[in-house]
Computed example of a mutant assay.
Amino acid sequence: MFELTDRVALVTGAGQSVGAGIATVLARAGAKVIVNDLHEERAQKVAAEITGEGLSAVASVFDVTDMDSVVGAIRAAEAELGGAVDILVNNAGIAQGNWSGPFRDLEPEQWRLPIDLNIYGSLNTTKAVIDGMCERGWGRVIQISSGSARTGQNIGVSMYATGKSGIEGFMRHLAAEVGQFGVTANILALGHQENLAEFMPPERIQQLLRTIPIGRLGDPFEVGAACAYLASYEAAGLTGQTVDFNGGSQTR
Rank of each mutant, 00 (worst) to 15 (best):
N36R: 13
G72Y: 01
A48C: 08
D131I: 00
N91G: 08
G97F: 12
V129I: 06
A92S: 11
G121C: 13
S145L: 01
A77I: 13
G121D: 15
E49I: 07
L113K: 14
E80W: 10
D66N: 15
D105T: 04
A43R: 03
A128E: 04
V61R: 08
R140W: 10
G30P: 08
F62W: 12
A149Y: 02
R136S: 07
S100A: 06
E80T: 14
L106D: 01
A43S: 12
N36F: 13
I115M: 15
S122D: 10
N124Q: 14
K127C: 06
Y120L: 15
G30L: 08
V89F: 10
G54Y: 03
G147D: 02
A73L: 09
S146C: 01
Q143P: 02
D86Q: 05
W99M: 00
A77G: 12
K127A: 10
G132R: 00
T51S: 07
S146H: 04
R136V: 02
G139E: 02
D131R: 13
L117M: 14
Q96W: 13
F62Y: 15
A29D: 08
T51Y: 00
G139H: 02
A57L: 08
A73W: 00
N90Y: 06
I94H: 05
G137C: 02
V64C: 11
L113G: 04
G54V: 01
S100G: 03
L38V: 13
V64N: 07
W138D: 01
A79D: 13
E135V: 01
C134L: 01
Q96F: 14
I50R: 05
T151F: 04
Q96D: 13
W111T: 06
L38W: 14
I87H: 06
